[in-house]
């Protein structure tokens, strides 16, 4: 009897410790792949930073078919991975089904809201970050005309454009903001030639600062800005170093921080809705050596002031996605 107890006890301990060992976090990348120089890669960098700082290990999966979304979430949940982070809004419907089946596993979805008791939804305040780069654009512009090149015409990109326009107009009420979208299909994310053409068009209308929120298309915008001697603003990752001397700043979206923090929180990650905004350094302009000569002290002061006011609620930046309209444009 005692022997039986010992064996049972030992087995239970083993089972428990095995469970603890297996509770690695996991991350699922969308079809773009983890080296997409953009969103997925930022998520990957966050995971890698966590791994190198903590010495921990994590599991990962890159989708190669849409039918795999539910499969991979289920596999990770069954394998004991916790939490399971997924990068991209396309996971929403798969997650809704899977989250209900695994109430003890925590899921984190980035850029989308899924309402379930074990899901943390992380979205970014792209509009407030864009407001701040708008402030900088208005101050850097000599012509009083600035512009915006968007990728695919979806509400998210209008959210960038609208915040940017408000930041420009609040700083210089007489300023003119030109907005162009590259296209209406996903190919608009990767069309640097079109991005370049749009930028030239905007320059001919007087623009001397251009903000590109257009994925790979933005590389053409940055290049043309450099060639034509005007300023550009990058997006998502810090793109200041891509064309040093002509990139005023980048509106960074810290997807890596979102992943890093979720991994750090581990199984204790808090379900619910989380906005990565100015207050928690989730979005904002990037300052480094590459753009230091372009940024004046007045600009920095103005950005800090606007940032404090937005956090305090003194400035309300309009979120395009709340009502699909933009008063500043």
């Amino acid at each position: 009897m005692t022997l039986m107890k010992t064996i049972l006890g030992a087995t239970a301990t083993l089972a428990l410790s095995a469970g603890a060992v297996l509770a690695d976090p996991a991350i699922v990348f969308d079809l773009g792949g983890k080296f997409d120089k953009s969103f997925n890669e930022a998520a990957y960098n966050g995971a890698e930073r966590w791994a190198s700082e903590t010495g921990g290990s994590y599991d990962e999966f890159e989708l190669s078919a849409d039918a795999q979304r539910e499969q991979v979430l289920r596999r990770f949940a069954e394998g004991g991975n916790n939490p399971i982070v997924m990068a991209g809004f396309s996971f929403a419907s798969a997650l809704e089904t899977v989250a209900a089946d695994f109430p003890d596993t925590k899921f984190v979805i980035i850029d989308m809201v899924v309402d379930a008791p074990n899901v943390r939804s992380i979205v970014f305040d792209e509009h407030t970050g864009s407001y701040l780069v708008g402030v900088m654009a208005a101050m850097a512009s000599e012509s009083g005309t600035v512009s915006f090149v968007g990728g695919m015409d979806i509400p998210l990109i209008s959210k960038f454009a609208c915040g940017y326009a408000q930041g420009v107009k609040d700083t210089n009420p007489d300023a003119n903001v030109i907005v162009n979208m590259t296209g209406t299909t996903p190919s608009a994310w990767n069309d640097p030639v079109k991005g370049s053409e749009l930028t030239r068009g905007q320059i001919s209308q007087g623009s001397d600062v251009v903000f590109a929120a257009a994925g790979g298309t933005g590389l053409g915008v940055l290049q043309t800005a450099k060639d034509e001697g005007i300023l550009a603003i990058g997006v998502d990752s810090n793109q200041n170093h891509l064309q040093p001397g002509s990139v005023l700043t980048s509106m960074v979206k810290r997807v890596d921080n979102a992943v890093y923090e979720s991994f750090t929180a581990g199984e204790g990650v808090e379900p619910g809705f989380a906005a990565m905004g100015l207050a928690n350094e989730g979005v904002g302009p990037a300052f480094d050596d590459s753009n230091a000569p372009l940024v004046t002290d007045e600009m920095k002061a103005a950005v800090e002031e606007a940032k404090a006011k937005i956090i305090a609620g003194d400035i309300v930046v309009h979120d395009y996605m709340s009502d699909e309209s933009c008063p500043s444009l």
């Binding site: 396309s90 989308m112 979806i154 509400p155 998210l156 209406t184 299909t185 996903p186």
Partner: peptide, 20 residues
């Protein structure tokens, strides 16, 4: 591919949703 992209980001898309 272009036709499907056009339709799925336009007339066939659910308004307000991001996914094509």
């Amino acid at each position: 591919a272009s036709l499907m992209g056009y339709l799925l980001t336009g007339v066939l898309k659910v308004p307000g949703k991001m996914a094509a």
